[in-house]
Design a protein around this nucleic acid. Structure first.
Lengths: 252, 252
DNA sequence: CGTCGGGTTGAACCTAGTCAAAGATAGTGG
DNA sequence: CCACTATCTTTGACTAGGTTCAACCCGACG
């Protein structure tokens, strides 16, 4: 696997260059946007114009049913892409709000489309990103449909652990940015069950929990509980933003 | 909404034409493949080379967890696209098998990619299809995460009803091609619960069930149960294959 | 200091799962 | 054509995992 080419934001080449295999983002186009805790990036029904890449902080995505039920569909941290759901219809099908103060890159979708047309690599990357999102949701569907509450919780914690590790942070010690209610919604559980489960796992020595601070103590036990045989998950993509919020692409 | 341009398979234009806004499928490239009941179209881990469009019959898609648990992710009938999950990694992340004897069009993905590059419409259609798939799964996730068993069942039946109707078939009277076990897996329930629910809904007069034959009798009640306020679901895409298995595209 | 959002814990309840048995259906081979 | 078998389906009795309702605690913030 080739090493990722890391680009500081201020070093990004403009569109004028002949190298179309690089994300066509220059200083002006790739603006940033700051969000305060609770601010919403987009809501259901908004017209879709831009993708966002999380630079720092944490967001949650959610869908709503006609009768008002809310389901959290995922949590986005640095490097994650937000807004893909709008591509299909031109309208956002899910909402996204900041769990804590956050910052995102703004990628006008028209730019992505042009890039995608100019460069086979760009096209591939965009489609790959979309397809990866489907697979992520499918895996979560598997969890919701077949696993018990404690297994889902273990999976959730290990998933976060792995994502933080990929950003160069601790895989065993981290802070969950969201309240129990949101974790519950994501896992198809009530907030009380989430609280009870965390207490139980702590009692059983698998982790230490203090409010939103988590310390994972016994990875093998968590793997066993989650039903994963091997620690490494299958086939993860390189993040396109590192922990510092710098864009990075891996040509070819 | 413009009427769909329907193309009999034998009338399909070759690639030589200048109109790139038409699916670039000629007789040779668009082969068909017959599947007998139980035959698998692709399995997890297969390398991804082709998309398939269902022409007739019915298939199920499923994912497996490391420990062997299986979750049915969806059912595909005429007009549905199979195999999108392979785009992300080049390997199929989910398996697909025929529930009954079926026939599919074979679309070499390289062809789709070339088309997508030659035509903005093609690119848009491909991405839209991918994004629509995400949204479909997200909606199902909402069902798995927030709804009770009977609500999920009602939603499932109404979804099938609507899909059959779009193919020009009866919306109230149809045959489910799959066993209770598969319905259960799809809905995150056991086969016994599925059976009990169908019996109960029949007792309550909402439908008539005889093995796999379903007659929906009281749509308003089913809508109410499923939590949907309005019968029409939001924003459905035109099918690209009609009930006769003929390809159809809607330029612009 | 009081209020408010979030978190923990307990007890009662209920939905859906599990286990078990028997009835239907379709496919197969004599 | 019919008997035999395998698969699918229905139904019942019992159980368990999670929800609901409620009380209480904690820390932040006006």
């Amino acid at each position: 696997m080739p090493a990722a080419k890391r680009l500081r934001r201020d070093d990004l080449p403009g569109l004028a260059g002949t190298d179309t295999d690089v994300l066509p983002v220059h200083r002006r186009a790739c603006s940033r946007r700051r969000l305060v805790r609770g601010e919403s990036l987009c809501t259901v029904g908004d017209s879709f114009r831009t993708l966002h890449v999380v630079s720092s902080g944490a967001l949650k995505g959610f869908v709503m049913s006609h009768n008002g039920a809310v389901q959290v569909t995922g949590f986005q941290i640095a490097g994650d892409i937000v807004g893909l759901d709008g591509i299909g219809t031109g309208l956002h099908q899910s909402g996204t709000v900041a769990l804590v103060d956050a910052e995102v890159f703004v990628l006008p979708f028209a730019l992505c489309e042009r890039w995608s047309q100019a460069s086979p690599y760009g096209q591939h990357l965009l489609m790959r990103t979309l397809a990866q999102e489907s697979i992520r949701i499918q895996r979560h569907m598997l969890a919701l449909g077949t696993m018990r509450a404690d297994q889902r919780m273990a999976l959730f914690l290990l998933d976060f652990s792995q994502r933080y590790e990929r950003l160069g942070l601790s895989r065993s010690s981290f802070v969950l940015g969201m309240p129990r209610q949101d974790i519950g919604s994501y896992l198809g559980l009530t907030l009380e069950t989430v609280s009870r489960l965390l207490s139980r796992l702590q009692r059983e020595g698998m982790l230490q929990v203090q409010g939103r601070s988590i310390d994972l103590l016994d990875f093998p036990a968590l793997w066993r509980l989650s039903g994963a045989l091997n620690p490494r998950r299958c086939m993860v993509l390189d993040p396109i933003v590192d922990a510092m919020g710098h864009l990075a692409v891996t040509p070819h």
